[in-house]
Amino acid sequence: MIRNDVPTRRSVDLDRVEALRLLAGVPLGRVVFTRQALPTVRPVNHVLDGGDIVIRTHEGAALTSQAQQAGGAGVVVAYEADAIDPDTHLGWSVVVTGYARLVTDPEELARIRGLLEPWAPQQGTDHAVRIRPDLVTGVLLTEAGGPAARSG
């Protein structure tokens, strides 16, 4: 049964450029990776840097350990961020899948430390992980007849 007082909504697929633009506009997201053969989700803050998602981590973090073990090959992760209004249920969601690699170059790491302050600072948060977006998907949740996704 469709209620007349509830606005009709639709979802619009976002292109890669628009999805990454929206992702760059929010400070927090969730990184998804495998830990002990099970999916694990951690809230983190991020910055887009050269088209990559960069997060700060600490020495004991599971993702840091996995990225160290994987070496240059990296570890497969997903990264999700969104901005959805809890009352209207309108907004957007973006998911990026790619390889996470530990940043090892001291100059690059120093530059990243200047770009991104950890949202939950703790002792040893001196590491950074760079996620190269291989697959980027996103959806805009809008009212029917509302704005379509912008391109570029």
Rank of each mutant, 00 (worst) to 15 (best):
V129Q: 01
Q123I: 12
D82C: 06
A128W: 00
I55M: 14
L22E: 00
A70Q: 03
G60H: 10
G25C: 11
P106W: 12
H89K: 11
W92Q: 00
V139E: 06
I2L: 11
R30Y: 13
Q66C: 02
G98R: 06
H46N: 12
Y99V: 07
E108F: 06
R130F: 05
V139K: 05
V44A: 06
E108Q: 15
G72Q: 12
S11I: 13
P121N: 09
A19T: 02
A62W: 03
P147L: 11
D13M: 09
T40R: 11
R111C: 02
I55L: 15
T104N: 11
Q66W: 02
R101Y: 06
S11E: 14
V139R: 07
D82M: 04
G74R: 02
L135Y: 07
R16Q: 07
V75P: 02
E107C: 03
D5K: 09
L28C: 13
G145L: 07
R3I: 06
A70V: 04
A100S: 09
V129K: 01
R130T: 03
A120M: 15
I84K: 08
E59N: 10
E143P: 00
V77L: 04
G138K: 03
H127S: 08
R9Q: 14
P118H: 08
A149Y: 04
D49Q: 10
V12W: 00
A128S: 10
W119Y: 12
D105P: 05
Q122E: 15
T97N: 10
G25L: 09
